[in-house]
Design a protein around this nucleic acid. Structure first.
Length: 109
DNA sequence: CGATTGACGTACG
DNA sequence: TCGTACGCCAATC
């Protein structure tokens, strides 16, 4: 895999997420056109481990703002620490004020 | 080529 | 409010 359009789009959007902001898999999925297939975003993220440059997957959470993918990080706390480092409050593995911090990729694309 | 899986989302009970 | 079921598309086995 060198430039899989599908993954590329997911990576691109994930990288476009401003610091201190978060987005959801469904929003990205809808943005790239997969729409209903929000699972594909997560699948793409799975490959994001090998993506270049590194994809800020810690800014991508599920619709509930829950850090579902934290388990896939280097450490289960890495994701939360990264978010807190960017100014995002994380409580009980979920983004605080997720609604306010939510960033729609459609606004940029 | 068929079956299974997947970092989700929505619907239903 | 919480738990379970189904759908959706693409990739992998």
């Amino acid at each position: 895999m060198v430039n899989d359009n599908f993954f590329e789009q997911v990576y691109e959007i994930a990288r476009l997420v401003p610091k201190g902001r978060v987005t959801s898999y469904g929003a990205i999925a809808k943005c790239i056109g997969t729409g209903k297939a929000s699972r594909m975003v997560g699948w793409a993220m799975n490959a994001a481990h090998d993506a270049t440059p590194k994809v800020p997957a810690h800014r991508v959470v599920n619709r509930n703002g829950l850090l579902t993918g934290k388990f896939h990080f280097q450490t289960d706390t890495q994701m939360q620490e990264l978010l807190e480092k960017e100014g995002i409050e994380v409580r009980d593995d979920k983004v605080v004020r997720f609604k306010e911090l939510f960033w729609e990729p459609l606004l940029e694309i």
